[in-house]
């Protein structure tokens, strides 16, 4: 009788152990299989290599691109997928009064980086980089709204959509470009300051634009490898406001004095949309 009880007891323990192992294996396997499938999942594995080129020399700051983007994406009030900044760059020589100032209109938008920090930090792969065409996109239905991507983005382009309450961003109009059209802002730009192309096509005019001009990217030091190339920012991007200057004179315009030449430099940036904030 005792032996029978012990046998039963052992058998029950074994059963529970097997049940536990089975449950762990099933759940773990399901989770990792889902994760593996999700990591490799991509809505479109296109062969295009899209890039964006902004020629700041041509931008007149008309904001048609901003309006077009708002209309195309139905972007809510107070948040922007693209905007145009006004940069004032140059110097005034206090000794001679010589002033050389350049005012630039600098359109900003998502850089769809090669090494996007926002994708790296997203806990649920709601932000992902399409392995085909390199677009950095958002799965709205999965986003949990932790805003890690917003903190990680060096360009400040990500925002919480006040209607959907999940992260949103510029998509380079993926719904258009994957159907042979150009992004709404590019189509609207009256001066062709914004250009969009496909590097996988050797005959694309974007090649000529990149090859014939000196192109720069914003914040290259972050290692994000941005794919919005700027023409006309040579020698400007990379100037850090505040270096060696008195903080009281920083806001705006940022002013600093080159002690070697005595020249006073200014670097003043304004966005036109601040009133909406």
């Amino acid at each position: 009788m005792k032996e029978t009880l012990e046998e039963k007891s052992t058998s029950r323990r074994d059963f529970i152990r097997a049940l536990a192992v089975g449950a762990v294996a099933t759940c773990g396997g399901a989770v990792f299989e889902t994760a593996r499938a999700e990591r490799t999942y991509s809505p479109q594995k296109g062969k295009n290599r899209f890039v964006f080129v902004v020629d700041v020399r041509k931008c007149i700051g008309c904001d048609a691109c901003v309006a077009a983007c708002k209309a195309e994406r139905n972007t809510p009030l107070g948040v922007f997928n693209t905007w145009v900044e006004k940069w004032e760059v140059g110097y005034t020589d206090p000794a001679t009064g010589e002033t050389r100032v350049k005012v630039l209109n600098v359109p900003k938008l998502c850089n769809h980086c090669e090494n996007p920090p926002c994708v790296k930090v997203c806990p649920v792969y709601a932000t992902y980089r399409d392995e085909g065409d390199g677009l950095v996109l958002q799965r709205y239905e999965r986003c949990i709204g932790c805003r890690l991507c917003e903190q990680a983005c060096p360009y400040g382009v990500r925002y919480i959509d006040p209607i959907m309450m999940v992260m949103n961003k510029c998509t380079w109009c993926d719904h258009r470009v994957r159907n042979g059209l150009k992004p709404a802002c590019v189509d609207t730009c009256p001066t062709k300051a914004r250009e969009f192309g496909d590097l996988s096509n050797p005959n694309d005019p974007i090649w000529e634009l990149i090859n014939k001009n000196s192109v720069q990217v914003l914040k290259p030091e972050t290692g994000a490898k941005p794919r919005v190339f700027y023409i006309g920012l040579e020698g400007i991007e990379g100037i850090y406001v505040g270096t060696g200057s008195d903080r009281k004179t920083q806001h705006p315009p940022a002013v600093w004095t080159d002690t070697a030449t005595g020249r006073v430099y200014t670097f003043n940036v304004r966005t036109q949309h601040n009133k909406f904030r």
Partner: peptide
């Protein structure tokens, strides 16, 4: 941090779609 999410009901998705490179 759970209450800080804009979509707290989806917070449970984290273990189901784990991104190993995310600090979360």
């Amino acid at each position: 941090p759970f209450f800080d999410l804009t979509m707290p009901a989806r917070g449970f998705l984290v273990p189901f779609y784990p991104n190993l490179s995310s600090p979360i």
